[in-house]
Design a protein around this nucleic acid. Sequence first.
DNA 1: TCATTAAATTGTT
DNA 2: AACAATTTAATGA
Length: 224
Amino acid sequence: MTLDATLQSSAAWFPLLETQERERVLRDITSTQYAPGAIIERKGERATAWLGVQSGLVKVSVGNSEGKLASLMGVPAGGWFGEGSLLKQERRKYDVVALRESLILRMPEATFAWLLDRSIPFNRYLLHQLNERVGQFVGKAESDRLLDPEARVARCLIELVNPLLYPGKAMRLDITQEEIGYLARISRQRTNQALRTLESAKLVKVEYGAVHVLDLEGLQSYGT
DNA sequence: TCATTAAATTGTT
DNA sequence: AACAATTTAATGA
């Protein structure tokens, strides 16, 4: 698949750009393949690019000062992230690790800044994304402790589906139950139980190596 | 293309 | 955590 076609389908912001802008983006973006468990960006490194997930699944682990995991964000194919560290010209505060075989796209800092300067639609996209992320963060803080495993899995799925949430796309997540357990901080066994419960409530459909989200609203209001 | 085998993922205890 | 069952992927005739 060409990079052009790839971006058309896996970067929601790309079709918003003008022809000239797209040409430069195509020239500047590089792609790298990562094996499961490979570290893509290490905490403390200077951020030099905006990161996009072309295929696979990536986790962003936010550690506290002792190095223990405090929270975790999953980024599925089509998601772009890391603009925070770019905008503030600071070192990354997160480790970025591939959860499965992943193809990562990098837009150089200069290109990112250039788009920021001249493309209004690109700015709108970023604004929307930042807003969404704040909302997720707030929701997570309140839910993380008090919820039962089913609700935590529900939150986790919402988090993964959200970046994909543009019209016409099937809400299918290529993720194993083991990975969901990792993201929701519960055991694989409990993940399995939770998914079955959610499935019997007609909120999701469980498949081999994948989960279909049938009722996003139902998931969001689960347990409330 | 089909059958066989290996690997990955899920279901159960 | 360990094990069995199931699904997918890989291999070769």
